[in-house]
């Protein structure tokens, strides 16, 4: 069976600068893979290239075995769910209409006109991020963290075999950070592949079954967290070391 995401020899240039160079990455179902690296290492570019939002100069991206350029926008959306870093909404739509956009590739209707099974998916996603209490309110009246949870629910509602999230825990309070990461573990347990870009190395260690380290657009390490985040990598890539109370500058 083909894997949810297969990237081979991916090179991406933005404005003449090479942001990703010869990256190979294949994701297996059932695993939460953490994508870490210093600022500008290419984490966001990797996710965006995997979705076709930035063109690949070299190399290839396959979703569920099919090359990205063979897929229509709708097919791609059904194969890959995405939570971008920016969690904006142009209009004061209500929370459940925002989450219903996660089902856009299956119809494109607003929440109140969804068919019953679709509506159940949306409501369940809202309940899972603990947003039922405010999902009826306009998103523009919510706090940043509340909005972030609704956007996470939108990504979950897509129910795609591949789920890619860019810093899903930022803007969340500690309890909801833990809950968000638990949700991702549940998603993986239900047979999805999850790729999550993280700044927090401790969170990567705690929640991810596999960690991919990017440095200057190249793969620096890839493996189980203890191995990928071993002291040499921490020092050479991040310039930090394990100290007694946490990470310290190396």
């Amino acid at each position: 069976m083909s894997r949810p995401l297969e990237i081979s020899g991916l090179t991406v240039s933005l404005g003449g600068r090479t942001v990703l160079e010869d990256v190979d990455l294949a994701l297996e179902p059932g695993v939460v893979t953490g994508l870490v690296g210093p600022n500008g290492a290419g984490k966001t570019s990797l996710i965006r290239a995997a979705l076709g939002l930035v063109p690949a100069r070299l190399g290839e991206v396959r979703l569920a075995g099919r090359a990205l350029h063979e897929l229509t926008t709708r097919e791609r959306a059904r194969l890959a769910g995405y939570l971008p870093q920016s969690r904006s909404s142009a209009w004061a739509i209500r929370g459940h209409d925002l989450v219903a956009l996660g089902r856009f590739a299956w119809g494109g209707r607003p929440f109140e006109r969804l068919a019953a099974p679709e509506r159940a998916i949306v409501e369940r996603a809202i309940a899972r991020v603990d947003a039922s209490a405010y999902a009826h309110r306009p998103v523009t009246e919510l706090s940043g963290g509340e909005r972030a949870r609704l956007h996470l629910a939108r990504a979950l509602a897509a129910q795609a075999p591949l789920l890619m999230l860019d810093e899903p825990a930022s803007a969340l309070d500690p309890r909801h950070q833990i809950e968000a990461m638990t949700l991702l573990a549940e998603e993986a347990a239900s047979g999805r592949a999850v790729l999550v870009a993280l700044h927090d190395l401790a969170a990567a260690k705690r929640w991810c079954g596999r960690v991919v380290v990017l440095d200057g657009g190249k793969l620096a390490a890839d493996g189980p967290p203890e191995q990928a985040l071993r002291p040499e990598i921490l020092k050479s890539v991040f310039g930090v070391a394990e100290g007694p109370g946490g990470l310290i500058p190396a």
């Binding site: 979705l51 939002l53 229509t72 926008t73 709708r74 791609r76 959306a77 059904r78 890959a80 995405y82 971008p84 920016s86 904006s88 909404s89 142009a90 209009w91 739509i93 925002l98 956009l101 996660g102 856009f104 590739a105 494109g108 607003p110 897509a158």
Partner: peptide
């Protein structure tokens, strides 16, 4: 409707922007 999420948001939701 999808463009409420912005152009990239709409594209990744499955809209042909």
């Amino acid at each position: 409707r999808a463009l409420t999420l912005g152009e990239e948001g709409a594209a990744t939701a499955g809209a042909n922007v």
